[in-house]
């Protein structure tokens, strides 16, 4: 299967500091890949170089021809002098029909928001609006930078369920950065552990057992991961008819200690 986007020996320098080096990365259609790593490990920079927002010092980023890509930034700071309704925001940069906007908002769980001012939204509402805007593009690849920052645990669990359902329904590949290792890992096909370069990658459970991963995050997540473990070995690329139930209630899972990155 051809990759949607491929980075080879990618190196990025920001303000004289080497942020990424020797990163080889590819993502296949329908794949959910999560990037974990400590603060300052280059997670956001990796996403930003994939969308073309930072220039690479070495290596290349190649996209599939005509790739439809959407990006959800970590946060969106709106200057208070800028009046902007949610509906109008969804029209940027490409105008959409009212029906398409409403459908995207509904899918992102923000159906009641179109007339609200962007500046008045809470963190969680803004996150859903950003997701709705990303969906309007009917992306083949969706990039999410810490999409659940500022959400409580049930909120972020619901968000990841939404993402997983989206992939299952549309076959859209998803690349996200996260700090919430325990929740994310259960929803990922592949985890990349980043710290300037790719320390280790693979199936979530493989990565969780890897020495490199434990060196970065400690072993506290091992137990947490077990709680959230579920069968995830389905061939998902274009298979929209899953035999198993995806409605795990992450939110009501038992409390436990886990090592948060950063």
């Amino acid at each position: 299967m051809t990759a949607l986007i491929t980075a080879s020996s990618l190196g990025v320098r920001l303000g004289g500091r080497r942020v990424l080096h020797d990163v080889d990365f590819r993502i296949a259609p329908g794949e959910i890949v999560t990037v974990v790593g400590p603060n300052g490990s280059g997670k956001s920079t990796l996403l930003r170089s994939l969308i073309g927002a930072v220039r690479s010092e070495t290596g290349t980023v190649t996209r599939k021809d005509g790739l439809r890509l959407s990006y959800v930034p970590q946060r969106l700071q709106i200057d208070p002098s800028l009046p902007m309704t949610v509906g109008r925001f969804l029209d940027l940069p490409t105008p959409a029909t009212g029906a398409a906007r409403q459908a995207a908002l509904a899918e992102a769980g923000a159906g009641e928001l179109p007339a609200r001012q962007l500046a008045d939204l809470s963190g969680g509402q803004m996150q859903r609006v950003l997701l709705a805007r990303a969906l309007l593009n009917r992306p083949e690849l969706l990039l999410l930078d810490e999409p659940t920052q500022g959400l409580d645990q049930p909120g972020s669990a619901a968000f990841y369920q939404r993402i997983e359902a989206l992939r299952d329904r549309t076959g859209c590949a998803i690349l996200m950065v996260s700090h919430e290792l325990h929740v994310v890992m259960s929803a990922s096909d592949r985890v990349i552990c980043l710290n300037g370069h790719i320390c280790c990658e693979g199936h979530p459970e493989t990565v969780a057992q890897a020495a490199e991963y434990r060196a970065l995050f400690g072993s506290g997540t091992g137990g947490a991961l077990a709680l959230y473990r579920h069968e995830h070995d389905h061939g998902h690329a274009h298979d929209h008819d899953h035999g198993h139930d995806h409605n795990h209630d992450h939110g009501s899972a038992p409390r436990h200690d886990h090592a948060e990155a950063g």
Binding site: R48, I78, L82
Partner: peptide, 19 residues
């Protein structure tokens, strides 16, 4: 207009949209 507004909201959103 639309490109200017997108770039004003967020440079990263602009880049992702090919602007």
């Amino acid at each position: 207009w639309r490109r200017l507004l997108t770039a004003t909201l967020s440079a990263d959103l602009a880049f992702a949209g090919g602007i």
